[in-house]
Simulated assay, not measured.
Amino acid sequence: MCRWLAYSGTPIGLDELLYKPRYSLIDQSMHSRMGVETTNGDGVGVGWYGPDDQPAPALFRGVGPAWGDVNLRELARVTTSGLFLAHIRASTGTPVQQTNCHPFRYGRWLWCHNGAIRGFRRLRRDLLFAVDPELFPGVAGSTDSELMFHLALTFGLRDDPVNAVERMAGFVEAVARTHGIADPLQMTVGTTDGDRVWAFRYSSERHSRTLYVSTAVSALRALYPENEQLSRVSDETRIVVSEPLGELKGAWQPLPESSWGVVQKGADELGAFHPKDPS
C-alpha cells in the first residue's frame, strides 16, 4: 500500500530521515520490508512547517517514484523543519496524479494514510455526500485517503481529533454495512495541526498495517551514551513510521492494534481506538 513517517522535535534537515538512514523512506520506496508491496512507486510527498508566522505548512508532491525524484532530493538537502510528514504512495486503484499524492492539506492541517477502504468505488458516492458542503470544494483528488481526511474534518478534526477520526471510521463501517461489504477499513493515519501529531492504527478486521513510534530519547541516550545523533536532539523528539528506519535495538516501539497516540509538548498520550457511528 504506502509508507509514511511523521517527525516532531529538534529541527533537522528533511534528508536526515528521507535519505540518510539505512532503511530510509526513500529506501522503503524500493525495498519495503513490512508493507503489502515491496515497491511504493506511485508518487511521493512531504509537508513541513516553517516559521510560526507562516499561515500554512509547505507542500511538495510528485507523481514519479520517490527514488528518482531529483527535485525532492534537492529540496530535502536544504530544507530544515521541526515538524514534517512524508509519504510514499502505492496506489490501490486510483490514478497516479498529483492531487492523489499525500500529504493532504487543509489550513494548518496535514494528513497522510496507509491502507484502503474495501469496495471504495461502491461506497464513494455515499461517503462524498457526507462531507460538509463548505469543505467539499477542497476534495481535489479521487482517493479514499483524501475523502477520509475531509470526513474527519467534517466530524470535528480541528476541535477533537481522536473523536473525529473515530466518527469517520464508524461512518465508513456503517455505510459499508448498507452495501454488504465486510471489514471495509484498513488504516494507519498520521495527522498534525503543526503543534501536535496524532497517529492512528486500526482495521475493521483487527489486523492492521504496521506502525511504530521511536523510543523516548532520554531512554535511548541511557542505552547508547556514545551515539552522537541522540545528543543532538531534544527529549521531546519523536518519529512515527510505518516501518523502522534502522536496526538500533530498542529504538522502535509498535503502536498497539486499534489504538491512537499523540506526540506533544510534555507527556505523550496513548489510548484505545473505538469507531463511533455518527448517527
Rank of each mutant, 00 (worst) to 15 (best):
V139N: 07
G141I: 06
E146A: 02
L147W: 01
M148G: 00
F149M: 10
F149L: 02
H150V: 00
A152P: 00
L153P: 00
T154I: 02
F155E: 04
F155N: 01
L157W: 00
R158G: 09
D160G: 04
D160R: 12
P161S: 06
P161V: 01
V162T: 10
A164Q: 13
V165A: 05
E166H: 12
R167Y: 06
A169L: 15
A169Q: 05
G170Y: 11
F171R: 06
E173F: 04
A174P: 01
V175I: 15
A176Y: 01
A176F: 05
A176R: 04
A176V: 04
R177Q: 11
T178H: 05
G180L: 07
A182L: 08
D183G: 02
P184W: 01
L185G: 02
L185N: 02
V189G: 02
G190S: 05
T192E: 02
R196N: 11
R196Q: 13
V197L: 14
V197T: 08
W198A: 01
R201W: 06
R201D: 09
Y202W: 14
S204C: 10
E205W: 11
H207W: 06
S208Q: 12
R209F: 11
Y212V: 12
Y212S: 10
V213P: 02
S214R: 03
T215I: 11
A216M: 15
A216H: 15
V217K: 14
S218T: 14
A222K: 14
A222D: 12
Y224H: 14
Y224A: 06
Y224L: 09
P225G: 08
N227R: 14
E228W: 08
E228R: 12
E228P: 05
Q229N: 09
L230D: 07
L230E: 08
L230S: 06
S231W: 10
R232N: 11
R232F: 06
V233I: 15
V233A: 04
S234W: 06
S234K: 08
D235H: 14
R238E: 11
R238F: 10
V241T: 13
E243I: 11
